[in-house]
């Protein structure tokens, strides 16, 4: 993520320089300073129609990022602070018996929103987590035998704290792939940290954010990303990366074909976020660690973690 190659904008590029998408990205970057790559990833996940898991220490700005995203996207948004006493109904909603017309009325839970910020998801019990993860996967909620469709776009940003393992329920490996990307934010640079110290609280900046996009616009952008050109060499590169995970002896299993499709989709979205009109290997290369990391399970005996394996694969896969 060191260099960010940029193709000079060309005439006829889908997104004009001052497009709403650009403004939205710029707005979030205004709040989460010095982390443009993370912001790009977040928008990529959104435009690829997936969900984002942010895993980092408390205090580095997970929630701020999620809130900033929610704010610029417009539409409805909900924040759910997960706790260990939360029940699935607290997320999904409940059917309430209405005395006056003797009918059950469905009261939608916080999940019925365009953007859902699931804070500290690993604090909830597995049952509650499952309820959210299933809703994410299916785009709908079934309560008391009735199915309720979630709004579109539907974008879940979940955060979890990797170190505070006591009293938490880490997401099961098998369900981690409900999240398209998993990323962390990382500590700010020294200069940025200094700015944070002297400037007013970033959280106050959140209040200045305005919705730059709306639901219709996001859906249009998703469709636009899906139509982006992916050339044969890029597909070759994607295949080579996926193949390398399947051939790696340190892994329990390689990436599935579904993950391969997700990689193409996300690479397209990433290209759109960068205002390219076609997909570059850079897009794939930069997305891949965040897409593959949580989907791969290293064999315990290999002594490696998935991150180093993914890095090794990227460093050893030739770009056609």
């Amino acid at each position: 993520m060191s260099s960010r190659p940029e193709l000079s904008p060309t005439a006829g590029a889908e997104a004009p320089p001052d497009s709403d998408l650009e403004r939205a990205i710029a707005a979030v970057n205004g709040v989460i300073v010095d982390k443009p790559a993370v912001v790009e990833l977040a928008f990529s996940a959104l435009l690829a129609g997936g969900h984002l898991l942010i895993e980092d220490l408390p205090g580095v700005g997970k929630t701020t990022l999620a809130q900033a995203l929610s704010l610029v996207l417009g539409g409805s948004w909900q924040r759910v602070q997960f706790t260990n006493d939360m029940l699935p109904a607290d997320i999904l909603g409940v059917s309430v018996f209405r005395r006056q017309d003797e009918l059950f009325e469905f009261r939608p839970g916080p999940v019925f929103a365009n953007v859902v910020l699931a804070d500290e998801i690993n604090r909830a019990t597995p049952r509650t987590q499952s309820a959210l993860l299933e809703a994410m996967a299916e785009g709908q909620v079934t309560v008391d035998g009735k199915t309720h469709t979630l709004p579109r776009p539907f974008f879940v940003i979940a955060t979890q704290n990797p170190l505070d393992m006591a009293g938490t329920y880490p997401l099961p490996d098998s369900q981690l792939d409900r999240f398209l990307l998993r990323t962390s934010i990382g500590y700010p640079s020294a200069a940025e940290e200094r700015r944070l110290l002297v400037e007013p609280d970033r959280r106050q900046l959140l209040e200045t954010l305005q919705p730059e996009l709306d639901s219709q616009r996001v859906l249009a952008l998703v469709a636009q990303a899906e139509a982006l050109h992916v050339a044969e060499p890029v597909l070759d590169y994607i295949q080579a990366l996926i193949g390398a995970t399947r051939n790696h002896a340190g892994l329990r299993a390689g990436l599935s074909p579904r993950a391969a499709l997700a990689l193409i989709r996300t690479a397209r979205a990433h290209a759109l976020v960068r205002r390219q009109d076609f997909c570059l290997p850079e897009n794939v290369k930069q997305i891949f660690p965040f897409l593959a990391g949580h989907r791969l399970q290293p064999l315990p005996e290999s002594g490696l973690d998935s991150r180093s394996i993914v890095e090794e694969i990227v460093a050893n896969t030739a770009v056609p």
Binding site: G250, P300, E301, S302, G303
Partner: peptide, 8 residues
């Protein structure tokens, strides 16, 4: 020879 390893 890509890798060698053994489970404990």
């Amino acid at each position: 020879i890509l890798r060698t390893g053994a489970a404990p």
